[in-house]
Design a protein around this nucleic acid. Structure first.
Length: 501
DNA sequence: CTGGGGATGGGGCCC
DNA sequence: TGGGCCCCATCCCCA
């Protein structure tokens, strides 16, 4: 009996020991498991944060998408712009959207051989997203005004080398710097990185600054393609760029490219449907490759002087608006002596110092796209060749839209957005800023932006008080020539409306 | 009626 | 000589 008792006690001890062992093992495993869970949870949180950032960016992008696009051009020499306060020299950010420079496979260049009814060919440049352009400008402006820092920095206009944005470039977890906002909607926007929007701003600015003088909007507009009096090829491509939306402020993240890294690009996922095409900003592409294109299309392709209708869909450039090209009004007091050339000179200078960045006008983008698109098309490219519209209807549209074939030149370049016809491609390019909202010329004194340098020059009279146009009858003075002309109708008694007509 | 921005067309200069 | 580019004149429109 005692023996049994002994055995029982031993068994109990052994059982307890076994249980204890088992418990110990379980605890250990549990601890490990807990640790793993904890780590997973951390990762999950991090990912969630990233997702939230992405969604936030997407939301911002959408908001911006409803605003008129504009190209930000930063004068690197003077370094205007938001975020300059934290900019550190020596870095240049470059954001390049994906799919910007590729042709669609399914949208090959088409020639209109069949519709040979007309000799006249019209190049039609379509402006996509034109409708949204208008309202966006003011919103954009208001936003900018709301941005105290932006205003401050712009107003300061302190010269500085446009450079990188330290805030975003900081290697640390970017997500911690900003508040996360839940944003509904699919993150169709592409994000370059998880950096801050501020960086993006600077990036875009730099991006459009364009060292190359060709990045001058006007130059771009009139430049590479010149004002070809209607490319005369029998078959000219119709550029159909459905949406060329540059990632706008905030959406894109900055890249801490550091230095001259141009490789930064929007290569991340894009929603093929909503796809905002990023703005291609590579200078080399904008120049050389486009030149190739231009030579191939407008020179080689334009064999027939009868020129076809070329429809070029306008590119929508939703570029963040914060880094406009700024003319150095400070340096050059704008009197009448202040020549526009001076402004442009400053601009050029600034551009010249930014060899790595290029501005993008709508067609500029188009050029880039085209230039690089000679290869296989990209699903994101959204550069589509439409069949050449060579019908009388098309021409009628063009003429009805303002083109008057009967007048001086044939207006064979049509803006697809408004069907307005132009005799020169440059004019179309300039015109498309109406749709794209690109306003590369910025006043350093009031942040006003202009699509044309000349208008900026005139605008700056507001600041200088220069009124070069004086009435000989009453000595009234006007800053606008047409204002004087209009005013003089008061003396002549001419009906203003009739006079206009 | 004025102020001022937007937009178009064309001329001039340079290479 | 022609193209590329810049600049200006002019007109329209709105506040």
């Amino acid at each position: 009996m005692f023996f049994h008792t002994q055995i029982a006690s031993i068994m109990e001890v052994l059982a307890n020991a076994a249980v204890a062992e088992i418990c110990k093992l379980v605890d250990d495993d549990y601890a490990v498991f807990r640790l793993e869970i904890t780590q997973s949870q951390k990762e999950n949180r991090a990912l969630r944060r990233k997702l939230q950032l992405l969604e936030l960016k997407v939301a911002r992008e959408r908001v911006l998408a409803s605003r008129p696009s504009s190209v930000k051009i930063l004068d690197r020499n003077r370094g205007m712009g938001r975020g300059e306060g934290h900019l550190t020299g020596g870095h240049r950010s470059f954001v390049k959207p994906a799919g910007h420079n590729t042709w669609r496979d399914d949208q090959p260049i088409t020639v209109d051989e069949g519709s040979g009814t007309s000799n006249q060919h019209v190049i039609m440049i379509e402006s996509v997203d034109a409708e949204a352009a208008g309202p966006r400008v003011k919103q954009e402006r208001s936003e900018r005004e709301e941005d105290p820092r932006h205003s401050r920095e712009i107003q300061t206009g302190a010269p500085h080398v446009a450079t990188e944005v330290p805030t975003t470039t900081a290697p640390g977890p970017p997500s911690t710097r900003r508040s996360i906002t839940e944003v509904s909607g699919p993150p169709n926007a592409f994000l370059k990185s998880e950096t801050d929007t501020e960086t993006l701003t600077v990036t875009h600015r730099l991006l459009h600054t364009g060292s190359d003088h060709r990045s001058d909007p006007e130059r771009l507009g009139r430049g590479r393609l010149g004002c070809p009096s209607a490319p005369g090829s029998e078959y000219l491509p119709i550029f159909h760029q459905t949406q060329r939306t540059v990632n706008s402020p905030g959406d894109g993240d900055t890249l801490d490219t550091g230095g001259d890294d141009l490789s930064c690009s929007y290569t991340t996922e894009m929603d093929p449907v909503n796809m905002p095409l990023g703005l291609e900003t590579q200078t080399d592409l904008s120049r050389g490759v486009w030149n190739q294109y231009s030579s191939s299309v407008y020179s080689e392709g334009c064999l027939d002087k009868k020129g076809p209708v070329i429809v070029v869909e306008e590119v929508t450039v939703n570029v963040e608006d914060d880094g406009p090209l700024t003319l150095n009004a400070d340096k050059t007091p704008l009197g009448e002596g202040h020549s526009q050339g001076r402004d442009v000179l400053d601009y050029r200078e600034s551009l010249g110092t930014n060899p790595n960045v290029a501005t993008q006008s709508p067609l500029h983008i188009l050029r880039d796209t085209v230039s690089t698109s000679m290869g296989p098309s990209d699903s994101h490219g959204h550069v589509v060749f439409h069949q050449v519209l060579n019908s009388k209807d098309q021409r009628a549209k063009a003429q009805g839209g303002g083109a008057t074939s009967g007048s001086s030149k044939e207006k064979r370049f049509l803006c697809m957005s408004c069907n307005k016809g132009f005799s020169c491609l440059q004019n179309v390019e300039t015109h498309q800023r109406v749709h794209t909202g690109v306003k590369p010329f910025s006043c350093t004194q009031c942040h006003m932006r202009f699509a044309q340098a000349g208008n900026l020059k005139i605008h700056q009279r507001v600041h200088t008080g220069v009124k070069p146009f004086s009435c000989t009858l009453c000595h009234m003075r006007y800053s606008h020539s047409y204002s004087l002309k209009r005013h003089q109708r008061v003396h002549t008694g001419e009906n203003s409306t009739a006079a206009v007509m």
